[in-house]
Structure formats: C-alpha cells, structure tokens
C-alpha cells in the first residue's frame, strides 16, 4: 500500500499538466502580488534582514491579507520544484535507458539542453530557499574613518581607511551637479595577524572569510553639503544560497542557448 501511494504520488508529480496548472497559478499569484505590493514596500523589505522564517512569524502574521500572495507563492514554488525534478528525472531515465541511440545528434542535444534548463530551475529554487532561510544578516552597519569595528560573531575586524568620492562628471542631470554618485571605500580587514585591503563601492561588494559586505549608503553626498561627516553604511551577509543560485543561472543560460541553437538547426533540418 505505501509503495502504491509513493508510485501514485510520483506519477502525479510527473504530469506536464500539473506543470501548466502550477505555472498558471504562479502567474495569477504574482500578478496579485504586484497589486498587493503597491505602497507596501515596508512589509516585505524586512524579509531581507530577518530571514524568511522570522518574517513569516512576525510581519506576515501581523498583515496576513497583504502577504497572502507570498504565503501562497511558497508552496506553489515548492510544488513546481518537485514537479520539475520528477518530470526531468523520468525523461532523463528513459533517455538513458532506451532512446539515446535512436535520436539524431541535434535532437539529442536539444533534449539535453531542455533538461539542463529544468535541472537548473530546481537548483535555482533551492538556492532562493537557502538564501532566505539559512543566511546570516547584519544590516545597516555604519563605519567612520578611524573607528574600526568587529564583525558580529567573528574575530574579523574592519576599518575604514579612506573614502575616495566619485563625483557626477556630466552636466545633464541638474540635481546631480556637484553630487557624489559613488565612493571607493578603502577597507582594512584584520583577523589575528592576517591583514587584507579591499575596496567597497556601490554594486561592488567585498567578500572575505565567508562574509560579504554590500554598500548601502555613504556620506557626504556632495562637497560642501549640509552634512559633512564621512561614513559608509553597509550590510554584512553570510549567504550559502548565492553560489547554487548563480551556478543555476549559468546552467539555465547554457541550456537556453543550447535550446535556441539546436531548435533552430532541428527546424532547418525538418524544413529541408
């Protein structure tokens, strides 16, 4: 009986109709999310800082109607992941067992590209989940020159040595005239006797000892402005989900280019 149940569940998850249903439900849910997100940034933003489970227990619980779409998104994405894995697993099994000898090379590569995209999709979803459940985040850390700080939960010390401002160099945007649009913050990391120099800037994180530093804000935003004090504000993150996510993206893109390339060749061959 339990084996039958397992087989039936497996068969249920191997259905492409289930894929279509789940995808359409996800589209409807995300469209609803788009509506719910209007003016509700403050509700979802803390998820980035407190992690998924804590966010679900606090923010989502306190505003269930506005976060309902997201609560629904989680099981739908999980089901899609299982469905994708089962479908691809089954197809690959059959491909390996019987069909690979009969398929022409282009067709085989096309099929393999599609399967690569599917497997990448599963890895991508796993990466997202890992990111939001297992990350350690220390948000909004302020650093000023001359006052080093220790990264929470470690012996790593970071000091801001110098801030090299990058001013807006064009003249098209009047509000940006005289304004700094980026900064090269020269940091010194110390861990025992080891010392490492690194430069932190907007969209240029620093990775060290498993921690990643992401610049949020900096000051002064303009020379001679009202607030002359020098500081940078950054988030420190330790996110084990990032690597699988990016590997998955690379694999998906490889599969996608393979699909486009071999689809084109297969169609040409059929036309001939």
């Amino acid at each position: 009986m339990p084996i039958q149940l397992v087989v039936r569940t497996y068969q249920f998850f191997c259905s492409i109709k289930l894929t279509v249903t789940l995808l359409l439900l996800l589209v409807a849910d995300l469209s609803l999310g788009y509506i719910c997100l209007q003016g509700k940034v403050s509700l979802f933003q803390p998820m980035n800082e407190v992690g998924l489970s804590q966010w679900l227990l606090t923010y989502a619980r306190s505003q269930p109607l506005d976060s309902a779409w997201f609560l629904l998104l989680l099981p739908l994405l999980s089901l899609l992941g299982i469905n994708t894995l089962c479908c691809t697993g089954e197809k690959l099994y059959h491909l390996v067992r019987s069909q690979h000898t009969r398929l022409p090379a282009n067709r085989l590569w096309l099929t393999l590209s599609i399967h690569l995209m599917h497997l990448a999709m599963v890895l991508l979803l796993a990466g997202y989940l890992t990111s939001y459940t297992l990350s350690t985040i220390y948000p909004s850390i302020t650093l000023t020159p001359g006052l080093p700080l220790t990264v929470p939960g470690s012996s790593l010390q970071v000091e801001l040595l110098e801030m090299q401002m990058i001013p807006y160099s064009r003249n098209r945007l009047i509000p940006f005239l005289g304004r700094n649009i980026d900064v090269n913050a020269h940091l010194l990391f110390k861990d025992g006797k080891e010392q490492v120099h690194a430069t932190l800037a907007m969209n240029r994180p620093v990775h060290i000892h498993g921690f990643s530093f992401f610049l949020q804000r900096f000051n002064p935003t303009r020379a001679g402005g009202m607030s002359p004090s020098q500081y940078i504000i950054f988030d420190i993150r330790r996110d084990p989900g990032v690597l699988p996510t990016f590997i998955a993206m690379g694999a998906f893109l490889t599969g996608l280019f393979g699909y486009l390339f071999f689809r084109h060749r297969t169609r040409k061959r059929l036309e001939l």
Binding site: L43, F44, S131, I137, N203, F214, T245, F246
Partner: peptide, 12 residues
C-alpha cells in the same frame, strides 16, 4: 550586487 540577495520581493 546592490542589495546582497538575488531576489527582493518588495520590488514590483
């Protein structure tokens, strides 16, 4: 690169 996470759910 900007926010430290590949997906931010608060961005429509």
């Amino acid at each position: 690169l900007g926010w430290g996470t590949p997906v931010v759910w608060h961005d429509a």
